[in-house]
Computed example of a mutant assay.
Amino acid sequence: MMPIAMILGILLYRYVGVLGFITPYLIAVMLFFTYCNINVKDIRISSLHLWLVFIQVVGSISIYMILSPINAIVAQGIMICVLAPTATSAPVITGMLGGNIESLTAYSLLCNLMVILVSPIFFAAIGEVDSSSFIDSVWVIFQKVSLLLFLPFIFAILLQKLSPRIHREVRRMKSISFYLWSLALVIISGKTVQFIVDQKSPDYKVEISIALSAFIVCVGQFLVGRRLGRIYDNTVAGGQGLGQKNTILAIWMAQTYLNPISSLGPGAYVLWQNLVNSYQVWRKRKELN
């Protein structure tokens, strides 16, 4: 389904690109369905989670500082691939690989909170936010990001407390997230292509560099996450937590707060992480057989 959604976005970019304004709403609804399937009592923050968050923050800063003297757009595109939180679909892949779903879910909540706190500072410092001062930029971004990532969690908890019956019905409808994700992927793929086509003087060297660097960072994050997870007897959750990213959110952030071309980083990351996940699932099935 992922390749089909991306191909549709590429082919219909002139039509779907204008729908970019609904992307944050799609993300919020997807997160809401994800959070409705979380039991807050099962959430336990571990040392592994803290290490993974530390790697995300320090890693994203380090990569930007290393690459920005070479090319600022490449630096932005790869930085967002590290900073982006865990994908909403990561628990599904974690379960298929025999990993600890509860641990991955706990980390997903923690890294989303980290993004709410850290990303406004990052984007205000290096992004292209229309505001009168750095503090104003931080506040503007914080409001938008926190509403997008935190409100779905609050609504899910309130629904569970106030109307358990409706909450159970919503949990049964979790497959809707997949279709929303597909629609969002069509839109952001189209919008990314539109940015590329509308460039007055495209720099294909920069765009290819972003795509290739995203591959290196993708594989690196999966490997580092698995190595660290193995120390805490949580290999799969560590790998998926650090490597499998919410690329829909990352692309939207890049297109909104950074140079739009930098969204090619998480755009390429979509392909690379799905290749890694496909290989992992194939290898797991081979072991079981």
Rank of each mutant, 00 (worst) to 15 (best):
M1L: 10
M2W: 08
G9I: 11
I10L: 12
L11D: 08
L12S: 08
V16E: 05
F21W: 15
F21K: 15
I27S: 05
I27D: 04
I27N: 07
V29Y: 15
M30K: 10
F32P: 03
F33E: 03
Y35P: 04
V40I: 15
D42P: 01
S46L: 01
S46I: 00
S46E: 03
S47Y: 08
L48R: 00
L50P: 02
I55H: 11
Q56N: 09
G59L: 12
S60F: 06
S62G: 10
M65Y: 07
L67I: 05
L67F: 10
P69L: 03
N71E: 08
A72T: 09
V74E: 03
V74D: 02
A75T: 09
G77C: 08
I78G: 09
I80S: 01
V82H: 05
L83H: 02
A84I: 05
A87K: 04
T88G: 13
T88E: 07
A90I: 03
A90E: 04
V92A: 15
E102N: 07
S103M: 02
T105G: 00
T105M: 00
T105E: 00
T105L: 00
A106P: 01
Y107S: 00
S108T: 10
L109I: 10
L109K: 00
N112T: 08
V115M: 09
V115I: 11
I121N: 07
F123P: 01
A124T: 05
I126L: 04
I126R: 02
S133D: 12
L147D: 05
F150E: 01
F150L: 11
F153S: 09
A156I: 12
Q160R: 14
L162H: 10
P164L: 09
R172D: 13
K174I: 14
S175I: 12
S177W: 08
Y179T: 13
S182V: 12
I187Q: 07
T192M: 11
Q194A: 10
S201Q: 09
S201V: 12
P202N: 04
E207W: 14
A211L: 11
A214E: 08
V217D: 13
C218W: 09
C218S: 13
C218I: 03
V219F: 14
V224K: 10
V224W: 06
G225R: 11
L228N: 03
R230V: 12
I231V: 12
Y232L: 06
N234Y: 00
A237R: 04
G241M: 03
L242V: 05
G243Q: 06
I248R: 07
A250Q: 07
I251G: 02
Y257T: 02
Y257I: 03
L258T: 05
L258F: 11
L258V: 04
S262Y: 01
L264Q: 03
G265L: 07
G265R: 04
G267Q: 04
A268K: 02
A268M: 02
A268F: 01
Y269W: 00
Q273F: 05
L275A: 09
V276D: 05
R285W: 08
L288F: 08
N289R: 13
N289C: 15
